[in-house]
Design a protein around this nucleic acid. Structure first.
Lengths: 109, 109
DNA sequence: CCTATATTCAACACATCAGTTGATCAAGGG
DNA sequence: CCCTTGATCAACTGATGTGTTGAATATAGG
């Protein structure tokens, strides 16, 4: 499933921050609230709250409601869209390299 | 092969820009110089030159010398490191989802 | 109802980024 | 040796991002 350019902007930029990547890692082990996500970091909860908003706007997480808590959940399909984008160009490059090697071997004979 | 945090910062941030992603796409079809990479965009070559420096610092491309030209080459291994990072957490999340479904089915009986 | 907890909003400071223009450096070709 | 071409450096501007503090909102629970 294709993703538009703005969505890729937001998703890749979101991953370009060590705090947000650590949050992704934690969320892969299960849902977590703002407070739980904030715990490992020496920053305020407001700052954490905004990191979460960045991840949500990027489509990388969704949020549910549980009383006064707003647990975050990782969205595997969004991650998959990113690897698909990257793989397209990696695979094309690798195919091109193999074709070049082929030519070099042929010439050498 | 693991990648350190700063390298992930630089690489993901580099991909968070549509101009740089378009450059990646072009480079997957073959090496290109600054001038060739600048051609599709309505920005100055100095700006393109700096985008290239960002991609190089991120390890996503390397540069060679060909007379006065400095062709850029995509580095597939760097792209692979990114998909590996993402996949680790996507797969963990999918495994967790499957375990939850399993539990739900068991409880329903 | 009142209070504590979880989260968010608003306004501000500071740093980084993407773009510009103008000057500079490096390599090739007449 | 000059001149052109490819690329980069330096300084500046405006926009965006990340953090802070302080106030506000919403829900739970006695």
């Amino acid at each position: 499933m294709p993703v538009d350019d703005d969505q890729l902007d937001r998703a890749f930029t979101a991953l370009g921050d060590p705090v947000r990547r650590a949050m992704i890692a934690q969320l892969s082990r299960g849902p977590a609230t703002v407070n739980e996500l904030a715990e490992p970091f020496p920053i305020t909860k407001q700052a954490v709250s905004r990191h979460i908003q960045v991840l949500e706007a990027a489509g990388l997480i969704t949020r549910t409601r549980d009383g006064q808590r707003r647990p975050c959940h990782l969205v595997p399909a969004a991650l998959e869209a990113l690897t698909s984008w990257i793989d397209e160009y990696r695979l094309e490059t690798e195919r091109r390299f193999r074709r070049m090697e082929e030519v070099l071997r042929t010439v050498k004979e």
